[in-house]
Write a protein that binds this DNA or RNA. Structure first.
Lengths: 161, 161
DNA sequence: GCCAGCATACTCGGATAGATTATGTCCGAGTTAGTTTGG
DNA sequence: CCAAACTAACTCGGACATAATCTATCCGAGTATGCTGGC
C-alpha cells in the first residue's frame, strides 16, 4: 500500500510554484532539476495535476506550469487524488457474494460491516489531509524557514536545466 | 495506493474463525473454499497473520489455524499491518536533500513540513482502525445478521474442500 | 485383548512462476520569439 | 524605417519500454492418525 512517489514530487512542486515570480510559468525541466529528478517523469505528474485543474499549462517558449487556483483553494487531498486517483485504499471486492447466503445483486461495499469499518479509516484520512491547503503549508514553511521564498526564486532563476 | 487484496481475505477469515467450534483448527483450504478463493494464496495470508502473532498454526491431520489471542485483543490495524507491513503510505524520500540548502545528514521525515502534514493523515487513519477490534466486528455482525454464527459453522462443517 | 512400531495421508511453510502496476523514456503537435525580407 | 511573413527553437502531451510489486502456484518438511503385527 505504498503511495506513488509522484505525490511527494507534486506536493513539493505546488509549494515551489507559490514562490515563483507572479505570472511566471515554470517549465517541467526546471521543477525537476530543482531536486535532481528525471524531467520526463516529473512532466507526467504535472500533466496529472493539470488534468485535475490544479495547474494550468502553457506550451512553447516561455511556457511551463503555474497554479490554476489560489493556494488557499488547493487541499493536499486534491493533489493526492490528482496523482493517485479517487478510489479508496481498501478494496472491498465483495467476497461475501460467494459466502453463505451471498447474493450477486447486493452491493457489499455498503452492507459489509468490514467494508464500513475500513471506510471509517479512509474517511478519517481524507478529512485530515483535506483540512490542509497549500496555503497553510506555504505559511508554515515561511514561518519556520524564512529564507525559503527567496532561495526558491534564486534557484529557479539560476538553474540551467 | 491500492491495499492488498489479502487484507480483505484476512479480515473475513479472522472474523470467521471467531465462529469456529471452540478449540477447533480450521485449515487454509476450508477458509479459502468458504469464499471460493485460491487455497495456496489464502495460505500465504494466513502465514503472515501467524508470523504477526494473530493466528497460531498446527501442522498435520486435524491441523489448521485458530486465533492466537482473544478477539478483543486483535485490532483491524493489527491485521492490516500483518499483511501490508508497518510502513506508512506516504513516502518521504527526502527530495529536499537535493534542494537548496539541502543536507544529506538531515532526516527530512521529521523536518519536512509536507511529510509532517501527510503523517497527520496517516495517524488519523491508524487511530481509526486501531480503535476497532475483531470482537467489535463480531458483535456488530451478530446484531445485524443473527444467523451468521450458525451458518458459518455449518459451512465449515459441510464444505468439502 | 493390548501395546508398540510403522506406514500413510494430511497440513503448513517457504521457494518458485506469471500478471499487473508503477516507474522511466522518447518523439511528435503546437506555439511563441526572433529573424529576415520586401515595401 | 516599418511591418508582415517565415523560420526555428522550445514546451507540453501522450505513446512506448523497463522495473518492481502483487497475485497465484507448486512441492517439500513435519506431524498426528490409524493400521498391523507381536506379545
Amino acid at each position: 500500500m505504498r503511495m506513488n512517489e509522484g505525490v511527494e514530487w507534486a506536493l513539493h512542486s505546488c509549494l515551489n510554484l507559490t514562490w515563483a515570480e507572479p505570472g511566471e510559468a515554470v517549465t517541467a525541466a526546471r521543477l525537476a532539476a530543482f531536486y535532481g529528478l528525471p524531467t520526463a517523469y516529473m512532466n507526467k505528474q504535472l500533466q496529472a495535476l493539470t488534468r485535475a485543474g490544479i495547474l494550468s499549462s502553457i506550451s512553447g517558449p516561455r511556457g511551463g506550469f503555474r497554479l490554476a487556483r489560489r493556494p488557499e483553494d488547493i487541499t493536499l487531498l486534491d493533489v493526492v487524488t490528482a496523482i493517485e486517483g479517487a478510489e479508496e485504499a481498501f478494496r472491498c471486492e465483495g467476497i461475501l457474494k460467494e459466502g453463505p447466503n451471498g447474493s450477486a445483486d447486493v452491493d457489499y461495499r455498503t452492507t459489509c460491516l468490514i467494508s464500513q469499518a475500513m471506510r471509517k479509516g479512509d474517511l478519517a484520512w481524507r478529512r485530515e489531509i483535506a483540512a490542509q491547503t497549500i496555503a497553510d503549508l506555504k505559511a508554515a514553511v515561511e514561518r519556520a524557514y524564512p529564507h525559503t521564498p527567496s532561495s526558491t526564486r534564486d534557484r529557479f532563476a539560476n538553474l540551467r536545466p
